[in-house]
Design a protein around this nucleic acid. Structure first.
Lengths: 192, 192, 192, 192
DNA sequence: GATGAATGAGTATTCATTCAT
DNA sequence: TATGAATGAATACTCATTCAT
C-alpha cells in the first residue's frame, strides 16, 4: 500500500553506514540483510533496490580503499628503491587509514576472509594480493625473514594499532599518530 | 590398505584439526558442519556424537589458550610493576603463540567477533576481556595514549607478525623470533 | 540517429511483441516483467502504464485468438453434422493459426497451464474449454475412442506440426500446408 | 522436537509422485516446493534431504525417459534406412510412452521450456536435441518439408494424442492404440 | 561409535505491484 | 508518458540440531 515513500536523506549512503557498522561489530556472515533493513526502518526489498546483492554492499564500502591501494602500488613501483621510499610508503599507507579509510580498515580486520575473496569490480586483485605486491616492491629480495617481517609490520601498523586500541578511549588522530610513530620505530635502521 | 582410510581412533582430534583449518581459512559462520563432516568422510550426526554443538568445537580448540591467558594474567597481577615485568610479560605472551597456540591465535585473528562472544565454559571473561585486563595491569594509569598503544602492540606482536607473514615462506620459529624482536624494539625505552 | 533508439510511438505493440517472444521461449512464469522492460529499454513502471498487470499482457496477446475460437464454435453449432462440416471446421481451425494467430498458438503450446487458467475478460470459458466444446459439436456421441482421438488430432494438427517443426527451416506457409494435408489424411474415411 | 520420524513407505518415491503430479497440472515454476511438501505432510527441508534441488527432482523423474530416448537413437543409427525401419521406430517411440513413460511425456508436454534446458546428468543432450537427432537419422536429406513434417508428426503422435485426449475418458491402452493407428496412417505411403 | 531421516528457523534473493512526482 | 523508490509476499535453499535405531 504505502509504496514509494520518500525517505529523509540519501538511502544508499544510510545503507552503507549501517552495513559497515554491523559487519564490523558482528561480522559479515553473522549480519543478515534483515537486520540491516530493520535497523534502517526499511524492507529487505528496498535494500535490493539500491544494492543488487549483499556482496555489492561490501564492495561499495571497500571500492575506494581498493582503488587507493592500487594507487599506492603504482606509486611505489615508480620510486627508486631505498629507505627514503620505504619511509614515504609507510606514511602513505597510514594515510589510507585516515577518515573513511579507517572504517574500511576496521571492516577488513574483522572480516579477513571476506576481504580475501573480494576482488574489485574491475576484476583486479583483492586487498591481500595488492598488499603482497606492495611488500614485494618495497622489500629487496635479499632481506632476511626478520627484516621482511619488520617492514611488513611497519606497513601494517595502522591495522595493528587499530586492534590494540580496542576499548581504549583514543581519537582517530591519536591512533594515526601512534601508528606512524610505531611504524617508523620499526623501520629505523638503528633498530635492526 | 590405502593410508588415511580409517581414523586411528582419535576422531575427536581429527574433527578439531579439520575444524580449525576451515574456520581459519573461510571463517566460522561460513564453515558449515556439513563441510567439516564431508572433509572427514563422516556424517554430521557423527560430529554430534563427539561434540554437542558447533560452539563447543570452537571452545575445545580455544580452551587451552583461554586458560593460558588466565595464567598469564594471574602471574602479571603478582609481579611488581616496572619495565622488567613488562619485558617478561611480552615474552610470555609470545610463548602463548608457540606450538598449538599458534593455530588458536590464527583462528582468533580470523574470527574476532566469534572470540569476543566466546566465554569459556567456566563462565569467565572472553579473550578480549582478558587481554584488556592484562593491558591494565601492565600499563600504568599515567601512560600517554601513544605509550599505551606501543605497549599494547608489543603484547600483540605475534598477532601482527602472523598477519604480516601471510604468503611468506617462514617457519614458525622464524615468526616467533621476529615477533620477539619487534616487541622488544617497541618497548625499548630508547625508542620512546 | 541510430535506428531503433526511440520507439515509433506504439509502445504497447512493442511490449506485446517482446512479451510473446519471451513467454514462448522461456515460459510465462520464468519470464519476469523486469526482463521484458530491460529488453525494451524502459522501466517496469512504464509497463504498468500500458498494461495493468502481467496477466493482462497475456490476455492482450490472446484475446483475438479467443474471440476467433468463439466464432468458430458458433459457426460449427449452426452447421449440419457430417463429414462436410468436419472438413470445413478443420480448415477454419488451421486458418486460426495463420498470421498473428501462429504466435498465439505457439504461446499456448508452451504455456498450457496458463492458458487453462486464462478466462477472457468477458468471463467466458478458457481456450481448452472452447476446444472441448468444438470437439463435442463435431464428434457424434457414438464415436469410438480411436475415432474421437483421430478427429480431435486433426483439429489440433497445427499445434502438432508446430511442435514437429522445431529447429526445422520451414516457412509459415509450408507449415500451414503440411498441417492441412495431415489433418485431411486423418479424417479421410478411407483411413478409418 | 519430533525429528527423524519414520514415514510409511518410500519417501523418495512419494516425492516424485506428488511432484510429477503438480508439475504437470500447474507447471514447474508455478509449483513451489512448499506446496509439494505440504501435500506430502513433510517439511521443505525433508525434501532437500532426499533431493538436492528442485531441478534434481525433475531429473529423477525424467532420467529414465532420457535414457530410453538415447537407446532408441542408438538403435536407429544401426538400422538400414527405409520404410521398414521407420515403421519400427514409430512403434518403439510409442512404447516409450507406455507405463511410467506416459507421465514423463505429459510432464514434458506441459513444461517444454524446462525440458529444453534439462540435460541429463551425464551431460548429454536434452530431450529435444535427442528427438532432432532421431528425426535426422530417420528422414533422408532429400525429403520435402511436408514429408518431413509428416514423419516427425508420426514420431510425435503419442504427444499429440495425449494433448487431444484432455478431458476425455480414455484408458492408457486406448490412447496408445490410437497413437499407433494415427502414426501409421501418417507414414503410410498411400497417403503421401 | 555412528547413521538416516527429519525439522524449525533462518538466509539471500526475486517478483508483481504501487504511487507520488 | 513515463520513472524512482519502495513494499509484501513469495521462492529456492541451507543450517545447526535431534533422535530412534
Amino acid at each position: 500500500m504505502a509504496a514509494g515513500q520518500r525517505r529523509g536523506g540519501d538511502t544508499k549512503a544510510e545503507i552503507r553506514r549501517v552495513a559497515i557498522e554491523l559487519f564490523t561489530e558482528r561480522g559479515y556472515e553473522a549480519t543478515s540483510l534483515r537486520e540491516i533493513a530493520e535497523r534502517l526502518g526499511i524492507t529487505k526489498a528496498a535494500l535490493y533496490y539500491h544494492y543488487s546483492s549483499k556482496e555489492n554492499i561490501v564492495l561499495s564500502i571497500f571500492q575506494a580503499h581498493l582503488d587507493a591501494l592500487d594507487g599506492l602500488v603504482a606509486w611505489a613501483r615508480e620510486q627508486p628503491p631505498g629507505p627514503e621510499t620505504l619511509a614515504q610508503a609507510v606514511d602513505r599507507m597510514i594515510d589510507l587509514g585516515v577518515g573513511s579509510g579507517m572504517s574500511a580498515m576496521k571492516f577488513a580486520m574483522a572480516n579477513q576472509h571476506v576481504v580475501r575473496e573480494l576482488h574489485d569490480h574491475k576484476g583486479r586483485e583483492n586487498a591481500f594480493g595488492k598488499m603482497t605486491e606492495l611488500f614485494d616492491i618495497l622489500i629487496g629480495p635479499g632481506a632476511s625473514v626478520e627484516e621482511t617481517l619488520r617492514i611488513r609490520s611497519a606497513l601494517l601498523s595502522v591495522n595493528m594499532v587499530l586492534m590494540a586500541a580496542r576499548d581504549l578511549n583514543a581519537s582517530e588522530a591519536e591512533i594515526t599518530k601512534a601508528a606512524r610513530a610505531i611504524a617508523h620505530t620499526l623501520i629505523n635502521p638503528e633498530n635492526l
